[in-house]
Nucleic acid binder design. Structure first.
Lengths: 227, 227
DNA sequence: CTAAAACCTGACCAATTGGTCAAAATTAAT
DNA sequence: ATTAATTTTGACCAATTGGTCAGGTTTTAG
Protein backbone atom coordinates (compact mmCIF):
# COMPACT_ATOMS: atom_id res chain seq x y z
CA UNK A 1 0.00 0.00 0.00
CA UNK A 2 2.94 2.28 0.05
CA UNK A 3 3.75 2.36 -3.65
CA UNK A 4 2.60 5.92 -3.72
CA UNK A 5 2.96 6.75 -0.09
CA UNK A 6 6.68 6.11 0.06
CA UNK A 7 7.44 7.92 -3.16
CA UNK A 8 5.98 11.17 -1.99
CA UNK A 9 5.25 11.70 1.61
CA UNK A 10 2.12 13.69 2.07
CA UNK A 11 2.70 14.33 5.75
CA UNK A 12 -0.11 13.80 8.17
CA UNK A 13 -1.80 10.62 7.14
CA UNK A 14 0.96 8.30 6.08
CA UNK A 15 3.51 5.97 7.59
CA UNK A 16 1.33 4.82 10.41
CA UNK A 17 1.00 1.30 11.66
CA UNK A 18 -0.39 -1.21 9.20
CA UNK A 19 -3.12 -2.31 11.60
CA UNK A 20 -5.19 -0.83 14.37
CA UNK A 21 -8.30 1.28 14.51
CA UNK A 22 -8.59 3.77 11.74
CA UNK A 23 -5.71 2.41 9.73
CA UNK A 24 -7.99 1.90 6.75
CA UNK A 25 -9.17 5.46 6.92
CA UNK A 26 -5.60 6.70 7.07
CA UNK A 27 -4.42 4.57 4.19
CA UNK A 28 -7.32 5.38 1.92
CA UNK A 29 -7.30 9.09 2.66
CA UNK A 30 -3.60 9.21 1.77
CA UNK A 31 -4.25 7.22 -1.39
CA UNK A 32 -7.01 9.58 -2.44
CA UNK A 33 -5.08 12.74 -1.56
CA UNK A 34 -2.12 11.56 -3.60
CA UNK A 35 -4.32 10.72 -6.58
CA UNK A 36 -6.18 14.00 -6.22
CA UNK A 37 -2.98 16.02 -6.24
CA UNK A 38 -1.97 14.35 -9.48
CA UNK A 39 -5.28 14.85 -11.20
CA UNK A 40 -5.78 18.41 -9.96
CA UNK A 41 -2.27 19.28 -11.12
CA UNK A 42 -2.78 17.80 -14.57
CA UNK A 43 -6.35 18.87 -15.21
CA UNK A 44 -7.07 21.87 -13.02
CA UNK A 45 -9.91 22.07 -10.53
CA UNK A 46 -12.78 21.81 -12.95
CA UNK A 47 -10.99 19.43 -15.26
CA UNK A 48 -10.37 16.94 -12.48
CA UNK A 49 -13.22 14.48 -12.16
CA UNK A 50 -13.89 12.51 -9.03
CA UNK A 51 -14.07 9.44 -11.24
CA UNK A 52 -10.53 10.05 -12.52
CA UNK A 53 -9.26 10.60 -8.99
CA UNK A 54 -10.94 7.43 -7.79
CA UNK A 55 -9.52 5.43 -10.66
CA UNK A 56 -5.99 6.65 -10.02
CA UNK A 57 -6.39 5.85 -6.34
CA UNK A 58 -7.61 2.39 -7.24
CA UNK A 59 -10.90 2.86 -5.46
CA UNK A 60 -14.52 3.15 -6.58
CA UNK A 61 -15.80 6.68 -6.96
CA UNK A 62 -18.33 6.35 -4.16
CA UNK A 63 -15.44 5.66 -1.82
CA UNK A 64 -13.88 9.00 -2.59
CA UNK A 65 -17.12 10.69 -1.67
CA UNK A 66 -17.35 8.57 1.44
CA UNK A 67 -14.09 10.01 2.75
CA UNK A 68 -14.20 13.57 1.49
CA UNK A 69 -17.83 14.29 0.78
CA UNK A 70 -17.45 16.75 -2.05
CA UNK A 71 -14.82 17.48 -4.67
CA UNK A 72 -14.50 20.94 -3.16
CA UNK A 73 -13.61 19.49 0.25
CA UNK A 74 -11.09 17.15 -1.32
CA UNK A 75 -9.53 20.03 -3.22
CA UNK A 76 -9.16 22.06 -0.04
CA UNK A 77 -7.58 19.09 1.69
CA UNK A 78 -5.01 18.82 -1.09
CA UNK A 79 -4.43 22.54 -0.91
CA UNK A 80 -4.02 22.41 2.87
CA UNK A 81 -1.17 19.93 2.57
CA UNK A 82 0.53 22.16 0.04
CA UNK A 83 0.08 25.37 2.00
CA UNK A 84 1.52 23.78 5.12
CA UNK A 85 4.51 22.72 3.07
CA UNK A 86 4.89 26.22 1.66
CA UNK A 87 4.98 27.88 5.06
CA UNK A 88 7.57 25.58 6.57
CA UNK A 89 10.22 26.42 4.02
CA UNK A 90 11.37 29.83 5.13
CA UNK A 91 12.71 28.70 8.48
CA UNK A 92 16.34 28.93 7.49
CA UNK A 93 16.18 32.70 7.17
CA UNK A 94 17.08 33.96 10.65
CA UNK A 95 18.59 37.21 11.88
CA UNK A 96 21.94 35.77 12.80
CA UNK A 97 22.51 33.56 9.81
CA UNK A 98 24.74 34.61 6.98
CA UNK A 99 22.53 36.19 4.28
CA UNK A 100 24.39 34.74 1.32
CA UNK A 101 24.43 31.28 2.77
CA UNK A 102 20.86 31.37 4.02
CA UNK A 103 19.43 32.71 0.76
CA UNK A 104 21.44 30.28 -1.33
CA UNK A 105 20.27 27.39 0.80
CA UNK A 106 16.68 28.53 0.60
CA UNK A 107 16.78 28.87 -3.18
CA UNK A 108 18.42 25.49 -3.60
CA UNK A 109 15.83 23.91 -1.33
CA UNK A 110 13.05 25.46 -3.36
CA UNK A 111 14.51 24.11 -6.59
CA UNK A 112 14.87 20.64 -5.10
CA UNK A 113 11.28 21.01 -4.10
CA UNK A 114 10.30 21.86 -7.68
CA UNK A 115 11.99 18.71 -8.86
CA UNK A 116 10.62 16.42 -6.19
CA UNK A 117 7.09 17.72 -5.81
CA UNK A 118 6.20 19.48 -9.04
CA UNK A 119 2.56 18.48 -8.71
CA UNK A 120 2.13 20.42 -5.49
CA UNK A 121 3.60 23.46 -7.15
CA UNK A 122 1.29 23.12 -10.12
CA UNK A 123 -1.83 22.78 -8.02
CA UNK A 124 -0.82 25.90 -6.14
CA UNK A 125 -0.02 27.81 -9.34
CA UNK A 126 -3.38 26.84 -10.76
CA UNK A 127 -5.09 28.12 -7.65
CA UNK A 128 -3.30 31.47 -7.84
CA UNK A 129 -3.93 31.91 -11.54
CA UNK A 130 -7.62 31.37 -11.01
CA UNK A 131 -7.72 34.06 -8.35
CA UNK A 132 -7.08 32.11 -5.12
CA UNK A 133 -10.80 31.68 -4.54
CA UNK A 134 -10.18 28.81 -2.12
CA UNK A 135 -7.15 30.37 -0.51
CA UNK A 136 -7.93 34.01 0.15
CA UNK A 137 -7.36 33.85 3.88
CA UNK A 138 -4.09 32.01 3.58
CA UNK A 139 -2.64 34.79 1.47
CA UNK A 140 -3.92 37.69 3.54
CA UNK A 141 -3.21 36.11 6.92
CA UNK A 142 -0.66 33.30 7.06
CA UNK A 143 1.53 34.11 4.09
CA UNK A 144 1.42 37.85 4.58
CA UNK A 145 2.38 37.68 8.24
CA UNK A 146 5.14 35.22 7.46
CA UNK A 147 6.57 37.52 4.83
CA UNK A 148 6.29 40.43 7.23
CA UNK A 149 8.23 38.45 9.82
CA UNK A 150 10.90 37.48 7.32
CA UNK A 151 11.04 41.05 6.07
CA UNK A 152 12.23 42.03 9.52
CA UNK A 153 15.02 39.51 9.20
CA UNK A 154 16.07 41.08 5.93
CA UNK A 155 15.91 44.53 7.47
CA UNK A 156 18.11 43.39 10.31
CA UNK A 157 20.61 42.07 7.78
CA UNK A 158 20.59 45.44 6.09
CA UNK A 159 21.00 47.21 9.44
CA UNK A 160 23.93 44.97 10.25
CA UNK A 161 25.50 46.03 6.96
CA UNK A 162 25.35 42.48 5.68
CA UNK A 163 23.50 43.36 2.50
CA UNK A 164 22.01 46.17 0.45
CA UNK A 165 18.44 47.28 1.03
CA UNK A 166 15.86 45.60 -1.17
CA UNK A 167 12.08 45.36 -1.18
CA UNK A 168 11.37 42.04 0.55
CA UNK A 169 8.10 41.37 -1.26
CA UNK A 170 9.74 41.69 -4.64
CA UNK A 171 12.74 39.68 -3.50
CA UNK A 172 10.55 36.80 -2.39
CA UNK A 173 8.41 37.14 -5.50
CA UNK A 174 11.41 36.77 -7.76
CA UNK A 175 12.75 33.82 -5.79
CA UNK A 176 9.42 32.04 -5.78
CA UNK A 177 8.74 32.80 -9.42
CA UNK A 178 12.14 31.64 -10.61
CA UNK A 179 12.27 28.47 -8.53
CA UNK A 180 8.67 27.34 -9.01
CA UNK A 181 8.98 28.04 -12.72
CA UNK A 182 11.00 24.84 -13.03
CA UNK A 183 8.05 22.85 -11.73
CA UNK A 184 5.20 24.75 -13.34
CA UNK A 185 6.81 25.31 -16.74
CA UNK A 186 8.84 22.13 -16.79
CA UNK A 187 7.68 21.20 -20.29
CA UNK A 188 8.83 24.54 -21.62
CA UNK A 189 12.24 24.42 -19.98
CA UNK A 190 12.66 20.79 -21.02
CA UNK A 191 11.86 21.70 -24.61
CA UNK A 192 14.42 24.49 -24.53
CA UNK A 193 17.21 22.35 -23.12
CA UNK A 194 16.26 19.77 -25.73
CA UNK A 195 15.25 17.00 -23.40
CA UNK A 196 11.95 15.35 -22.75
CA UNK A 197 12.57 15.51 -19.04
CA UNK A 198 14.95 17.71 -17.11
CA UNK A 199 17.89 16.05 -15.40
CA UNK A 200 19.13 16.58 -11.87
CA UNK A 201 22.02 18.48 -13.40
CA UNK A 202 19.64 20.84 -15.20
CA UNK A 203 17.99 21.63 -11.89
CA UNK A 204 21.38 22.24 -10.26
CA UNK A 205 22.37 24.67 -12.99
CA UNK A 206 19.04 26.41 -12.64
CA UNK A 207 19.56 26.79 -8.90
CA UNK A 208 23.07 28.16 -9.45
CA UNK A 209 21.81 30.73 -11.93
CA UNK A 210 19.07 31.90 -9.60
CA UNK A 211 21.41 32.03 -6.61
CA UNK A 212 23.90 34.05 -8.61
CA UNK A 213 21.33 36.62 -9.64
CA UNK A 214 19.66 36.95 -6.28
CA UNK A 215 22.86 37.22 -4.26
CA UNK A 216 24.41 39.78 -6.56
CA UNK A 217 21.10 41.60 -6.68
CA UNK A 218 21.34 41.95 -2.91
CA UNK A 219 24.93 43.08 -3.06
CA UNK A 220 26.14 39.81 -1.60
CA UNK A 221 29.27 37.98 -2.55
CA UNK A 222 28.48 34.99 -4.70
CA UNK A 223 30.96 32.44 -3.40
CA UNK A 224 31.34 29.19 -5.27
CA UNK A 225 30.78 28.23 -8.88
CA UNK A 226 30.66 31.83 -9.95
CA UNK A 227 34.35 31.89 -10.78
CA UNK B 1 -18.88 47.21 -30.84
CA UNK B 2 -15.46 48.33 -29.82
CA UNK B 3 -15.92 48.41 -26.06
CA UNK B 4 -13.75 45.37 -25.75
CA UNK B 5 -11.89 45.58 -29.01
CA UNK B 6 -10.33 48.95 -28.26
CA UNK B 7 -9.33 48.05 -24.74
CA UNK B 8 -7.21 45.12 -25.71
CA UNK B 9 -6.18 44.73 -29.28
CA UNK B 10 -6.20 41.12 -30.30
CA UNK B 11 -4.37 41.69 -33.54
CA UNK B 12 -5.68 40.10 -36.69
CA UNK B 13 -9.37 40.51 -36.61
CA UNK B 14 -9.99 43.95 -35.17
CA UNK B 15 -10.10 47.53 -36.27
CA UNK B 16 -11.39 46.85 -39.73
CA UNK B 17 -14.02 48.84 -41.52
CA UNK B 18 -17.44 48.86 -39.90
CA UNK B 19 -19.15 47.72 -43.08
CA UNK B 20 -18.38 45.62 -46.11
CA UNK B 21 -18.32 41.91 -46.75
CA UNK B 22 -17.20 39.86 -43.85
CA UNK B 23 -17.32 42.69 -41.33
CA UNK B 24 -19.78 40.77 -39.20
CA UNK B 25 -17.51 37.75 -39.16
CA UNK B 26 -14.57 39.89 -38.13
CA UNK B 27 -16.43 41.68 -35.39
CA UNK B 28 -17.96 38.57 -33.90
CA UNK B 29 -14.80 36.51 -34.06
CA UNK B 30 -12.96 39.25 -32.18
CA UNK B 31 -15.76 39.46 -29.64
CA UNK B 32 -15.67 35.72 -29.08
CA UNK B 33 -11.87 35.52 -28.91
CA UNK B 34 -11.78 38.28 -26.32
CA UNK B 35 -14.46 36.61 -24.22
CA UNK B 36 -12.76 33.24 -24.61
CA UNK B 37 -9.42 34.60 -23.38
CA UNK B 38 -11.13 35.92 -20.28
CA UNK B 39 -13.00 32.73 -19.49
CA UNK B 40 -10.09 30.41 -20.30
CA UNK B 41 -7.82 32.53 -18.07
CA UNK B 42 -10.25 32.49 -15.16
CA UNK B 43 -11.51 28.92 -15.40
CA UNK B 44 -8.88 26.92 -17.26
CA UNK B 45 -9.56 24.89 -20.39
CA UNK B 46 -11.98 22.41 -18.96
CA UNK B 47 -13.56 24.90 -16.59
CA UNK B 48 -14.42 27.26 -19.40
CA UNK B 49 -17.83 26.49 -20.88
CA UNK B 50 -18.88 27.57 -24.33
CA UNK B 51 -22.03 28.92 -22.72
CA UNK B 52 -20.00 31.19 -20.44
CA UNK B 53 -17.88 32.40 -23.34
CA UNK B 54 -20.97 33.08 -25.39
CA UNK B 55 -22.62 34.99 -22.58
CA UNK B 56 -19.57 37.16 -22.01
CA UNK B 57 -19.38 37.85 -25.73
CA UNK B 58 -23.07 38.79 -25.73
CA UNK B 59 -23.96 36.13 -28.26
CA UNK B 60 -25.98 32.92 -28.16
CA UNK B 61 -23.97 29.78 -27.65
CA UNK B 62 -24.79 28.35 -31.06
CA UNK B 63 -23.15 31.40 -32.60
CA UNK B 64 -19.85 30.57 -30.93
CA UNK B 65 -19.97 27.12 -32.48
CA UNK B 66 -20.93 28.62 -35.82
CA UNK B 67 -17.67 30.57 -35.93
CA UNK B 68 -15.23 28.22 -34.23
CA UNK B 69 -16.80 24.81 -34.47
CA UNK B 70 -15.45 23.26 -31.34
CA UNK B 71 -14.20 24.54 -28.00
CA UNK B 72 -10.86 22.98 -28.85
CA UNK B 73 -10.56 25.04 -32.04
CA UNK B 74 -11.50 28.19 -30.17
CA UNK B 75 -8.91 27.47 -27.52
CA UNK B 76 -6.21 27.01 -30.13
CA UNK B 77 -7.22 30.27 -31.76
CA UNK B 78 -6.85 32.08 -28.43
CA UNK B 79 -3.52 30.36 -27.89
CA UNK B 80 -2.32 31.31 -31.38
CA UNK B 81 -2.86 34.98 -30.66
CA UNK B 82 -0.88 34.66 -27.46
CA UNK B 83 1.98 32.68 -28.96
CA UNK B 84 2.38 35.22 -31.76
CA UNK B 85 2.56 37.92 -29.11
CA UNK B 86 5.16 35.95 -27.16
CA UNK B 87 7.49 35.53 -30.11
CA UNK B 88 7.48 39.15 -31.14
CA UNK B 89 8.87 40.38 -27.87
CA UNK B 90 12.51 39.44 -28.11
CA UNK B 91 13.29 41.66 -31.08
CA UNK B 92 15.15 44.25 -29.08
CA UNK B 93 17.96 41.85 -28.27
CA UNK B 94 20.43 42.31 -31.14
CA UNK B 95 24.17 41.77 -31.41
CA UNK B 96 25.10 45.40 -31.55
CA UNK B 97 22.80 46.72 -28.87
CA UNK B 98 24.04 47.46 -25.38
CA UNK B 99 23.34 44.39 -23.22
CA UNK B 100 22.37 46.30 -20.10
CA UNK B 101 20.04 48.59 -21.97
CA UNK B 102 18.54 45.87 -24.14
CA UNK B 103 17.91 43.48 -21.26
CA UNK B 104 16.49 46.22 -19.06
CA UNK B 105 14.16 47.31 -21.85
CA UNK B 106 13.06 43.76 -22.48
CA UNK B 107 12.32 43.09 -18.84
CA UNK B 108 10.41 46.33 -18.47
CA UNK B 109 8.39 45.55 -21.58
CA UNK B 110 7.54 42.13 -20.20
CA UNK B 111 6.36 43.63 -16.92
CA UNK B 112 4.22 46.18 -18.74
CA UNK B 113 2.86 43.27 -20.64
CA UNK B 114 1.99 41.47 -17.40
CA UNK B 115 0.09 44.51 -16.28
CA UNK B 116 -1.74 45.16 -19.52
CA UNK B 117 -2.50 41.64 -20.70
CA UNK B 118 -2.51 39.43 -17.62
CA UNK B 119 -5.17 37.20 -19.12
CA UNK B 120 -2.96 36.16 -22.00
CA UNK B 121 -0.21 35.29 -19.56
CA UNK B 122 -2.58 33.22 -17.46
CA UNK B 123 -3.93 31.25 -20.37
CA UNK B 124 -0.38 30.48 -21.42
CA UNK B 125 0.66 29.53 -17.89
CA UNK B 126 -2.31 27.24 -17.63
CA UNK B 127 -1.36 25.58 -20.88
CA UNK B 128 2.22 25.00 -19.70
CA UNK B 129 1.18 23.68 -16.30
CA UNK B 130 -1.08 21.14 -17.93
CA UNK B 131 1.75 19.88 -20.09
CA UNK B 132 1.45 22.00 -23.25
CA UNK B 133 -0.73 19.41 -24.93
CA UNK B 134 -2.00 21.93 -27.44
CA UNK B 135 1.32 23.65 -27.90
CA UNK B 136 3.98 20.97 -28.19
CA UNK B 137 5.23 22.04 -31.60
CA UNK B 138 5.45 25.67 -30.67
CA UNK B 139 7.83 24.87 -27.85
CA UNK B 140 10.02 22.46 -29.76
CA UNK B 141 10.09 24.43 -32.99
CA UNK B 142 9.29 28.13 -32.82
CA UNK B 143 10.28 28.95 -29.27
CA UNK B 144 13.32 26.72 -29.22
CA UNK B 145 14.73 28.12 -32.45
CA UNK B 146 14.04 31.65 -31.29
CA UNK B 147 15.89 31.02 -28.06
CA UNK B 148 18.75 29.44 -29.99
CA UNK B 149 18.94 32.51 -32.19
CA UNK B 150 18.93 34.84 -29.22
CA UNK B 151 21.48 32.66 -27.47
CA UNK B 152 23.88 33.52 -30.24
CA UNK B 153 23.29 37.18 -29.53
CA UNK B 154 24.18 36.61 -25.90
CA UNK B 155 27.27 34.66 -26.91
CA UNK B 156 28.35 37.50 -29.13
CA UNK B 157 27.94 39.89 -26.23
CA UNK B 158 30.13 37.63 -24.15
CA UNK B 159 32.70 37.38 -26.95
CA UNK B 160 32.74 41.16 -27.21
CA UNK B 161 33.53 41.30 -23.51
CA UNK B 162 30.28 43.10 -22.84
CA UNK B 163 29.04 40.64 -20.22
CA UNK B 164 29.89 37.50 -18.28
CA UNK B 165 29.00 34.09 -19.68
CA UNK B 166 25.67 32.74 -18.58
CA UNK B 167 23.42 29.90 -19.67
CA UNK B 168 20.88 31.55 -21.98
CA UNK B 169 18.09 29.09 -21.29
CA UNK B 170 18.27 29.72 -17.56
CA UNK B 171 18.62 33.44 -18.09
CA UNK B 172 15.48 33.56 -20.18
CA UNK B 173 13.70 31.24 -17.79
CA UNK B 174 14.39 33.51 -14.85
CA UNK B 175 13.34 36.60 -16.77
CA UNK B 176 10.12 35.01 -17.98
CA UNK B 177 9.33 33.50 -14.61
CA UNK B 178 9.91 36.71 -12.70
CA UNK B 179 8.05 38.99 -15.09
CA UNK B 180 5.08 36.75 -15.81
CA UNK B 181 4.75 36.05 -12.10
CA UNK B 182 3.22 39.49 -11.71
CA UNK B 183 0.41 38.52 -14.06
CA UNK B 184 -0.08 34.89 -13.06
CA UNK B 185 0.28 35.33 -9.31
CA UNK B 186 -1.16 38.83 -9.16
CA UNK B 187 -3.51 37.94 -6.29
CA UNK B 188 -0.61 36.68 -4.22
CA UNK B 189 1.59 39.71 -4.82
CA UNK B 190 -1.34 42.02 -4.26
CA UNK B 191 -2.07 40.33 -0.93
CA UNK B 192 1.57 40.73 0.11
CA UNK B 193 1.77 44.42 -0.76
CA UNK B 194 -1.54 44.80 1.09
CA UNK B 195 -3.61 45.99 -1.81
CA UNK B 196 -6.53 44.46 -3.60
CA UNK B 197 -5.01 45.40 -6.91
CA UNK B 198 -1.44 46.26 -7.75
CA UNK B 199 -0.69 49.81 -8.79
CA UNK B 200 1.40 50.99 -11.72
CA UNK B 201 4.04 51.92 -9.17
CA UNK B 202 4.11 48.38 -7.81
CA UNK B 203 4.79 47.09 -11.28
CA UNK B 204 7.55 49.64 -11.79
CA UNK B 205 9.25 48.59 -8.57
CA UNK B 206 8.93 44.97 -9.59
CA UNK B 207 10.56 45.71 -12.92
CA UNK B 208 13.39 47.59 -11.21
CA UNK B 209 14.05 44.71 -8.85
CA UNK B 210 14.15 42.19 -11.67
CA UNK B 211 16.36 44.40 -13.83
CA UNK B 212 18.75 44.88 -10.92
CA UNK B 213 19.12 41.16 -10.29
CA UNK B 214 19.41 40.13 -13.92
CA UNK B 215 21.93 42.80 -14.89
CA UNK B 216 24.13 42.17 -11.89
CA UNK B 217 23.75 38.46 -12.45
CA UNK B 218 25.21 38.97 -15.90
CA UNK B 219 28.03 41.12 -14.58
CA UNK B 220 26.50 44.23 -16.09
CA UNK B 221 26.49 47.66 -14.58
CA UNK B 222 23.09 48.47 -13.19
CA UNK B 223 22.81 52.10 -14.14
CA UNK B 224 19.92 54.11 -12.81
CA UNK B 225 17.83 53.74 -9.67
CA UNK B 226 20.14 51.15 -8.18
CA UNK B 227 22.37 53.28 -6.02
C1' DC C 1 -19.05 -14.45 20.07
C1' DT C 2 -21.80 -10.51 19.38
C1' DA C 3 -23.14 -6.11 18.49
C1' DA C 4 -21.82 -1.76 17.02
C1' DA C 5 -19.07 0.96 14.32
C1' DA C 6 -16.64 1.67 10.29
C1' DC C 7 -16.20 0.80 5.64
C1' DC C 8 -17.61 -0.41 0.84
C1' DT C 9 -19.91 0.13 -3.61
C1' DG C 10 -23.20 -0.78 -7.66
C1' DA C 11 -26.90 1.52 -9.17
C1' DC C 12 -28.98 5.54 -9.71
C1' DC C 13 -30.13 10.69 -10.52
C1' DA C 14 -30.56 15.59 -11.73
C1' DA C 15 -27.80 18.99 -13.75
C1' DT C 16 -24.52 20.43 -16.95
C1' DT C 17 -21.85 20.09 -21.07
C1' DG C 18 -20.19 20.35 -25.97
C1' DG C 19 -22.19 20.04 -29.95
C1' DT C 20 -26.06 19.71 -33.77
C1' DC C 21 -29.60 21.23 -36.81
C1' DA C 22 -33.16 23.12 -39.49
C1' DA C 23 -35.67 26.92 -40.22
C1' DA C 24 -35.60 31.86 -40.18
C1' DA C 25 -33.46 36.40 -40.79
C1' DT C 26 -30.10 39.27 -42.60
C1' DT C 27 -26.61 40.77 -45.86
C1' DA C 28 -24.25 40.61 -50.37
C1' DA C 29 -24.04 40.24 -55.22
C1' DT C 30 -26.15 40.59 -59.90
C1' DA D 1 -35.60 43.15 -57.04
C1' DT D 2 -34.12 38.60 -56.90
C1' DT D 3 -31.13 35.32 -55.84
C1' DA D 4 -27.34 33.47 -53.34
C1' DA D 5 -24.52 33.49 -49.41
C1' DT D 6 -23.94 34.34 -44.90
C1' DT D 7 -25.47 34.73 -40.28
C1' DT D 8 -28.62 33.75 -36.37
C1' DT D 9 -30.66 30.96 -32.85
C1' DG D 10 -34.11 28.17 -30.12
C1' DA D 11 -34.70 23.60 -29.48
C1' DC D 12 -32.70 19.52 -28.94
C1' DC D 13 -29.41 15.48 -27.79
C1' DA D 14 -26.09 12.11 -26.03
C1' DA D 15 -22.48 12.03 -22.85
C1' DT D 16 -20.50 13.31 -18.65
C1' DT D 17 -20.54 15.08 -14.10
C1' DG D 18 -20.80 15.48 -8.89
C1' DG D 19 -23.25 13.49 -5.70
C1' DT D 20 -26.61 10.09 -3.20
C1' DC D 21 -28.10 5.95 -1.05
C1' DA D 22 -29.47 1.55 0.49
C1' DG D 23 -27.89 -2.64 1.50
C1' DG D 24 -23.90 -5.05 1.93
C1' DT D 25 -19.12 -6.52 4.12
C1' DT D 26 -15.36 -5.95 7.22
C1' DT D 27 -13.25 -4.28 11.36
C1' DT D 28 -13.32 -3.22 16.15
C1' DA D 29 -14.72 -3.34 20.99
C1' DG D 30 -16.55 -5.62 25.06
Amino acid sequence: MSETATKENLGKEVEKEETGPGHIRLRNRALILQAAEEVFAEQGYRGATTAAIAERAGLPKANVHYYFGTKETLYRAVLDDILALWLGELDRLTEDSDPAEALADYIKAKVVHSRERPLASRVYANEMIRGAKHTGDFLKNDLKSLVKRKSRVLESWVAQGKMEPIDPVHLFSVIWAATQHYADFEVQVAALVGRRQMTARDFDEAADTIVRMVLRGCGLHYGKAAE
